[in-house]
Design a protein around this nucleic acid. Sequence first.
DNA 1: TGTTCGTGGCGAACACCGTTCGGCCCGAAC
DNA 2: GTTCGGGCCGAACGGTGTTCGCCACGAACA
Lengths: 239, 239
Amino acid sequence: MPSSPRTSPAKAPLSRDAIVATTLALVDELGFGVVSMRRVAQALDTGPASLYVYVRDRDELMALAHDLAVAPVELPGESDGDWRARLELLVDRIVDALGSHDDIASVGLTDVPVGPQTLRVTEEMLRLLRVGGIDDAACAWAADLLGQYIASSALEKAARLRAQRDLARADATGCASEEAMSEAFSARLDVVYRSLPADRYPTIAVLAPLLTGGHGGSRAAWKLRVIIDGLLAQDPALR
Amino acid sequence: MPSSPRTSPAKAPLSRDAIVATTLALVDELGFGVVSMRRVAQALDTGPASLYVYVRDRDELMALAHDLAVAPVELPGESDGDWRARLELLVDRIVDALGSHDDIASVGLTDVPVGPQTLRVTEEMLRLLRVGGIDDAACAWAADLLGQYIASSALEKAARLRAQRDLARADATGCASEEAMSEAFSARLDVVYRSLPADRYPTIAVLAPLLTGGHGGSRAAWKLRVIIDGLLAQDPALR
DNA sequence: TGTTCGTGGCGAACACCGTTCGGCCCGAAC
DNA sequence: GTTCGGGCCGAACGGTGTTCGCCACGAACA
């Protein structure tokens, strides 16, 4: 039988790194929830059983992909300002990196990520907090709090990107890009809040326009500022 | 054929409420991830297809169960202190309620819950924030931030409870209850942090003992305090 | 009273999923 | 030259969410 020439250049010889990279690419293309072991295997031109040589679980595979997603994050340098400016920049970059790979940030909410890339940025976060004079115990808990913020914000960003893409694909013509996107994203929630009985939920009714707005980045920046201000307000004695 | 007497009193005639209540009970018993439509149907002595008359999705069913889990939360009264004390108490109660039903809080991280019970407590949260003199826009975003905190903390509490129960079931004899529990919970993470190369991750190495401790409630209370202090530190003008 | 009709209930099936078993085959070592 | 070991993977197992289409029953109507 003639050795059928592969359609792909040579068929990469299947390695842990190749599997993880393919997984992350499929997450970008299809979405986090839809990427299955079978699909990853198919993309690598093999069967699902082959993956288990290099990876224990789907969970482990997704944890590895999560870590790979953090890899492009550059640590802020000395020209980026004082510790606080650098910390905010670093956290922003992590959110950006994770948020551009669909819901892969949800991995960080289930179990604490301990991959080398995540450790790399965590180390820098902790270092900056200490430079800022934060108490040691507060540093540790602050890293936890910031981790929650990062995962939540990344998920939010991913949801917004998804809604944008879906909407852009829906009406393939031109559309009033920016504002229409944002509006359509929060439209569903908006109609819920606006249709509530104002006598039972008076405060929600009053704040309804504010509850669904500000997704353009100012909301996330505000949250991060709140957390860091709150950190600085703690007495160094700590409880 | 003889009408076989039901083991259960009369076989409740299958209603939306009964389905949701059974779902939440199964979540408590088996765990969030393991509760399937089939299992809920089996517990109700029927087939899985019957559920779809009352519920659109598994997602909708879990959202309803999430809302039911919030139902027992009582709003703090006038005797519970000023707005801040009441807010902290309210948030604590929500975390407690959600955290005692395994990972059902994860529903709140995927999509914004809009069930009546969640709206009830959200309304009170927003009201208390306004009583505290927080700017309207800040109230709206603060509710979002607190929602993230609530979901994350509830998940953490659920994980701790799960670890405790698993451990207690493992050695069925007596064990040094409190400390052993806490220690075993963070043991896995602890060995990871302690085994890291200290030259590459110096700050993590120094803070390792602090990173995994404080899960007994002080950590959560501290986080909530940080958030509210941060809120109060914001200029009312808001950016 | 007899008949029709609509609807809740549900058995069976579809298309997937994660994971494991067992054997294939190829390359290295003796 | 032969044996051996391990990467590789076809096939299967036991699950999943969801849909289709039929049944049986109770109410409304002639």
